[in-house]
Amino acid sequence: MKWWIINALCWLAALPACAAPAADSLRGDTAQRRPTFYERRTQHLRSSWARLVPNMGSIHFYGGVGLVSLGTGWHYGRKDQWETEVLLGFVPKYESDHNKATLTLKQRFVPWRIGLSSRWAVEPLTAGCFVNTIFGEDFWARQPSRYPKNYYGFIPKLRTSIFIGQRLRYNIPSRNRIFWKSISAYYELSTCDLYLISALPNRRVRLGDILTLAFGLRLEIF
């Protein structure tokens, strides 16, 4: 068991860690020597790229981006209040001809984190926006050339949405970690651009009509 924990942690920390052995072996050969420009340069390059390693993942259900979506992303910021995520979603065909895939780019703001105990914490508000693109020949990003300019004044392929939500977070004690540092359950209520412009001039389209619910698990790796 212990071996697996070490192994998993090594893998998850793969890129930031890979600079360390190199430095160690150098230190063994030439003790106390100041790193050369080349060494500092490669070290800098490694640590810069290491920051791009995704440090969280997610499993996301519904929410207008797919029946189920798998996400990977980054949490960052001085108070760890920002998150950026990329999700790949699956849309079953239902009454249409094909199953479809979607891709989502999502930005989230998490202003508060309230600890309930050493393990449990509540994030009472998450808010943000996302852009979703759906693949398939029925959805154009640029109006086909046969149409006069601005024949349809919108882009079927691209939806922009805003959302708010909440999360409950469980911090896994370090001795029990296998893959993840923490797991959060969340839900989000969103609405998209076309729903908003449908609801605004119409009393008959109510708030409940334009809301979309999503729920899922956020998995923090490190």
């Binding site: 239902y94 939806r159 209520l189």
Partner: peptide, 19 residues
């Protein structure tokens, strides 16, 4: 949120899902 879930059609797969 659970109330909303049972109340209306908020679990949407995609605006063009044809569901």
């Amino acid at each position: 949120a659970a109330l909303l879930l049972t109340g209306c059609d908020v679990l949407e797969v995609h605006p063009y899902d044809a569901h």
